[in-house]
């Protein structure tokens, strides 16, 4: 399994755990309203659950599992792949920091731009790998 995939899959598992823990706290607060302040973490729960866990795991697995290029046997530009990993995770962390008020709320724009950049790189890296080598 290539390095970008390993990083993405392992990061996605950590995000999954964080998402589940926050979700569990929110669920418990429904019957113990004295802990209702955890509802402030609902946006973090959604961000890490969707972008951190599901989207990141899908991207990491696709990078590993889609057909490699026939001539070079590579998965494309490795530096771009690492940039994709960095941008996606930086985007998620900026958004989370913004949701918990460590950063200003407008930082979400930067977070979303970084996530968008990661997805654009993902498309660039995988477009020509979605092929059939059967003639």
């Amino acid at each position: 399994m290539p390095t970008p995939s390993r990083w993405m899959i392992k990061a996605s598992m950590l995000y999954m755990l964080i998402g589940f823990v926050i979700g569990a706290m929110i669920l418990i607060s429904k019957v113990y309203p004295e802990y209702s302040s955890v509802w402030n973490l609902l946006t973090v729960h959604i961000e890490v659950g969707i972008f951190g866990w599901i989207i990141q795991l899908t991207m990491g697995t696709a990078y590993w599992i889609l057909p490699r290029f026939l001539k070079t046997k590579s998965r494309g530009n490795a530096k771009l792949a690492l940039a994709m990993v960095g941008m996606l995770n930086l985007g998620i962390l900026i958004n989370v920091a913004s949701y918990v008020s460590i950063l200003h709320s407008s930082a979400i724009i930067l977070g979303r731009v970084l996530e968008l950049g990661a997805v654009a790189l993902f498309i660039v890296l995988h477009w020509n790998r979605a092929v059939s080598y059967n003639t």
């Binding site: 589940f20 979700g23 569990a24 669920l27 019957v31």
Partner: peptide
């Protein structure tokens, strides 16, 4: 509900 929450985190 508490058992449900803990059970999912354990999973």
């Amino acid at each position: 509900i508490v058992i449900s929450a803990i059970s999912q985190v354990a999973a």
